[in-house]
Design a protein around this nucleic acid. Structure first.
Length: 246
DNA sequence: CACCAGGCCGTGC
DNA sequence: GCACGGCATGGT
């Protein structure tokens, strides 16, 4: 449970709710409830979502051998991984994420689900599709307290078809395409590419990563984290928040 | 009251 | 190209 908490509610996905005795999420038109890694492995859809076929133990060994900081991060969060989320969900999630905290991002995610998604099980709402969300307006979004992100969400709805092209594009082109949506800068684009399209070459730099890089990796370029930049980034993100780096 | 949170936009240089 | 303030909201 503690292992799963960081993966499911640590800032890469906002779909999961900590129910106390399990984690639940409305995905793939149903409510999933999990308490352990095995729960992901025994369901085909969840197994893919959990990125079960990737050799994380090999990656961990490689990353651990780089330096003491990464070694400590890997030890602290041994089972960390990159979930394979839905591109649209990742897009809106990380629009909500800017200048915001994880708790409130999750709250807004749930507010959108209740308002525009559909009830899959009593009290459990799916995240709205682009079509469902297109019923909203700037005024309604403001009522849900999304703040200045309202116009960003509206533009993302308009340009949702962009997501269909991303898989066929090189990273830089895909990034540029996503950044043509209002409110999508380099950081949000990298999160969408990583968490929504599983582009493992992504390296999202947020305030926490910025602090880690300044403190522990001054002067180092991102090539230092090859061949697992995204995983290194995720380990450092969790570790920085764990340490409450100042 | 201040400052911050998985940032981005517009402006000025 | 880079630095800066503004931006909605809720928490500390």
């Amino acid at each position: 449970m503690q292992e799963l908490r960081e993966i499911l509610t640590g800032g890469q996905s906002f779909s999961w709710k900590d129910e106390g005795n399990c984690f639940s999420a409305v995905l793939n038109e149903k409510v999933y409830r999990v308490t352990s890694e095995e729960d992901f492995l025994k369901d085909p859809w969840l197994k893919n979502y959990y990125d079960a076929d990737f050799d994380y133990s090999l990656a961990r060994e490689t990353i651990k051998s780089k330096d003491g900081i990464l070694a400590s991060a890997v030890e602290a969060f041994p089972s960390l991984r990159i979930l394979r989320q839905d591109p649209w969900i990742a897009l809106i999630s990380f629009i909500l994420s800017q200048n915001n905290n994880i708790k409130r991002i999750t709250g807004l995610y749930n507010a959108l689900s209740q308002a525009y998604g559909h009830e899959v099980e009593k009290g459990y709402y799916s995240f709205p599709t682009p079509e469902e969300l297109s019923r909203t307006s700037i005024a309604e979004l403001r009522k849900l307290r999304v703040g200045f992100r309202d116009s960003y969400i509206m533009d993302a709805i308009q340009k949702a078809d962009i997501l269909k092209e991303i898989d066929s594009l090189e990273y830089d082109e895909a990034e540029k395409k996503l950044m043509s949506i209002r409110g999508i800068g380099k950081k949000v684009a990298s999160c969408v590419l990583l968490f929504g399209f599983h582009r493992m070459e992504a390296f999202p730099v947020d305030v926490w990563i910025r602090k880690v890089l300044e403190k522990y990796y001054p002067g180092k370029g991102l090539e230092y984290f090859e061949p697992y930049p995204a995983l290194c980034q995720q380990y450092l993100f969790s570790y920085a928040r764990f340490l409450k780096l100042e």
